[in-house]
Each structure stands twice: as structure tokens, then as C-alpha cells.
């Protein structure tokens, strides 16, 4: 088809195959204030893994993570069920870093809040490589810019 896709940034939408590590839900707001700096968030996830609240290695079930100006959606590989839905306006920040286990895998931490902004949840996914993690961050950043531009 002659429809050109991709260059029109407002239609930015991308799909990535990731694995789900886990989530730490319903953190109180004062706790979320402590999780602003990237290293604090990484240490928090590390501690959760050491305490067994989060596994070190995700299940081997792959999922598809969609990033667009609507936010982040995670669906099963056959896209029959939507597993997680993070609206863009509830996404506070996204962080990606090497999981340190030496296999070049990157962890993707998504900090979301609730509409009343009283608490926050940390969602952790595993990407297959840092390149994939970087592209996810790029698309999300473009989606924030696009949402900001349309707010004006």
C-alpha cells in the first residue's frame, strides 16, 4: 500500500517483545518521593529482588509491549488478551538499565501513579537487549513530546 508509515510522529506506535518480571504495587506517595533518582529506583528493585518480592529472572512467557501516544500496553503474544494497560498520563517515568547478570539483558522499570497521584506502582519488564530498551525509551519520549505538543 502507498500509505507511508512512521514518519508522521503523532502516529508513533511501536511493538517490542519483552518478558514480565513483576510489579511492586500501591507504594505510598512519600515512598514514591524517595524513588525519583534513577539509582534509588534501581536499588529499590534490587532490594525487592533480594527480599523475594520480585524474581531475579522473569518467567519465560514472552509478551508484546506496545508504546504509543496513548501509553504503554502489554498483551499476550497472540494479542488475544491485554495484560497491562498504562495510560500515558499515569506514567511518571521509565528507566532502563543492564540487569548486571552478564547476559546483556536490560530491565525496564515503569513508574506509574494513580489518577489521584496518592501512590505509585513499579512495573518491571526484561528486554532482550539494550538496543531494544533504548528504542522503547525513544518511542515513549516521542509520545510524551507528542502529548505535550497537543496539550498546548
Amino acid at each position: 500500500s502507498t500509505k507511508s508509515s512512521g514518519n508522521n510522529s503523532s502516529e508513533t506506535c511501536a511493538e517490542f517483545r519483552v518478558k514480565y518480571v513483576g510489579a511492586i504495587e500501591k507504594l505510598q506517595f512519600d515512598m514514591s518521593k524517595m524513588l525519583q533518582e534513577p539509582l534509588d529506583l534501581i536499588n529499590f528493585i534490587d532490594a525487592a529482588q533480594q527480599d523475594g518480592k520480585l524474581p531475579f529472572v522473569p518467567g519465560d512467557k514472552e509478551m508484546i509491549l506496545f508504546v504509543s501516544k496513548h501509553g504503554v500496553k502489554v498483551a499476550s503474544l497472540d494479542q488475544c488478551d491485554v495484560l497491562h494497560r498504562h495510560p500515558l498520563y499515569l506514567i511518571v517515568r521509565m528507566l532502563c538499565y543492564d540487569d548486571g547478570l552478564g547476559a546483556g539483558k536490560n530491565l525496564l522499570a515503569l513508574k506509574t501513579t494513580d489518577p489521584e497521584q496518592e501512590g505509585c506502582t513499579i512495573w518491571v519488564y526484561q528486554c532482550s537487549s539494550s538496543e531494544q530498551a533504548q528504542s522503547i525509551c525513544k518511542v515513549l519520549s516521542a509520545s510524551f513530546d507528542c502529548a505535550l505538543a497537543s496539550d498546548k
Binding site: R93, D98, L101, A133, C137, F144, L148
Partner: peptide
Amino acid sequence: IYKSAVTTVVNPKYEGK
């Protein structure tokens, strides 16, 4: 666990939160 490069994307709506 040593963490190398870290990339952060912040929603402008929550800058500083």
C-alpha cells in the same frame, strides 16, 4: 550487582515528582 548505562525518560507532567 553493578549497573552500567542507565536511561531515564520522565513524563514532563511529573517533572520533579
